[in-house]
């Protein structure tokens, strides 16, 4: 019997980064229905940074959390409805309780890769309510496999039924992924997962390396619709996994249809590896920064590539979008000073 891989599809969550969180209720319903038809096991929906994240800091979404979740809920029967939750943005009282009422099935509670302990109460709360809960470690390239395993173990101890590591900056090469996943698989009792970004063209190869190292949960989005250079294209991932002899339970033809529909209905343009995405991957900066960097570098007359490298030097993490502006102002003032110094 072929080994099984659980696919989680954040097209309607990570994809929101690519359109500045402007996905509409209708778009969400259309794609959710197509994913349901294809047998995608988990459909993740929401603002790019997850529940409660619509803000001036990271961008306001066109549609509020509850409307987005309800729109998807109506279309999903066999597919589970999933959400991404970052403590510090969302709270149990304001956000998680309402998501449970709406009927969210899978809660993925995320934190920066060194900060697992801020997820303790949220994971525990969701688990107590009898919902499925995974831990998510973001920007996982920033630490060693040992630290990552330590943090993942904390999430397991809080009650997480699986731990997913994210390559939020698209910075990994396959061997980085294989080493980290193998370490997690060795240290944890619960399933281990991988979420890729394609800045260095490695998303599918990295996902494969993850699966071969023992990951049994993999994220992918239709046409790679997601932050920065996009995610692992799900239709490619499903095809490759089938070819390798893994079973995903997804109907390939219908997945191809869903990807075609997503391209037509959701995307102003299909994600591609833009020049700045390569720099962002090399600098190891959160993919969700791309749209902000594009805008702010224009406003302050600085090279967006310099800005990405500067942010990499400052070791910024997801959620620190306000620092983009500060870094741009610093670069702009250095630029002004430079000619005077040489004269």
């Amino acid at each position: 019997m072929p080994s099984k891989v659980l696919i989680s599809d954040p097209t309607l969550r990570d994809g929101n980064h690519a359109v500045k969180h402007q996905l509409t209720e209708k778009q969400i319903a259309r794609y959710a229905a197509a994913a349901e038809a294809a047998g995608v096991p988990i459909v993740e929906v929401g603002h790019g940074n997850g529940l409660g994240a619509s803000s001036l800091q990271v961008g306001e979404s066109a549609v509020d959390d509850l409307t987005m979740l309800k729109a998807a809920r109506r279309e999903l029967l066999n597919s589970k409805l999933g959400i991404h939750v970052m403590p510090g943005f969302a709270t149990i009282n304001k956000d998680i309780k309402r998501a449970i009422e709406i009927g969210v099935d899978v809660f993925r509670i995320g934190a920066h890769c060194t900060e697992a302990d801020i997820t303790q109460r949220h994971i525990g709360f969701v688990r107590d309510k009898g919902k499925e809960v995974f831990g998510v470690l973001m920007m996982s390239h920033m630490v060693t496999k040992e630290i990552l395993a330590e943090e993942a173990s904390k999430m397991e101890s809080y009650g997480a039924e699986g731990v997913v590591i994210m390559d939020s900056a698209g910075a990994y090469l396959p061997r980085d992924v294989g080493g980290r996943i193998a370490e997690l698989v060795k240290r944890l009792q619960v399933p281990v997962g991988f979420h890729g970004h394609n800045n260095l063209g490695m998303a599918v190869a990295n996902s494969l390396a993850a699966v071969e190292a023992g990951a049994t949960i993999v994220d992918g989005t239709a046409r790679g619709f997601g932050a920065g250079a996009g995610n692992t294209p799900l239709e490619v991932l499903v095809a490759v996994l089938e070819k390798m002899g893994y079973s995903t339970g997804i109907n390939l033809y219908k997945m191809l249809d869903a990807a075609d529909l997503a391209e037509k209905e959701l995307m102003p343009s299909v994600p591609s590896i833009k020049s700045v995405s390569i720099v962002s991957g090399l600098a190891g900066v959160f993919s969700g920064f791309a749209k902000h960097v594009e805008r702010i570098s224009g406003e302050y007359g600085v090279d967006s590539r310099d800005l990405f490298f500067e942010l990499g030097r400052r070791k910024v993490v997801a959620g620190q979008e306000d620092l983009i502006l500060e870094a741009a102002m610093d670069l702009a003032s250095q630029k002004k000073k430079a000619p005077a110094e040489t004269s």
Partner: peptide, 28 residues
């Protein structure tokens, strides 16, 4: 969570603005 909700309550109380949001990021 208490940090977020208490800061929001303080913001609403002192600014007189009914809609307030707080975000906390920990950077290692």
């Amino acid at each position: 969570d208490e940090y977020v909700e208490t800061t929001e309550e303080g913001l609403r109380f002192f600014s007189g603005c009914e809609r307030a949001k707080t975000i906390l990021i920990q950077n290692p």
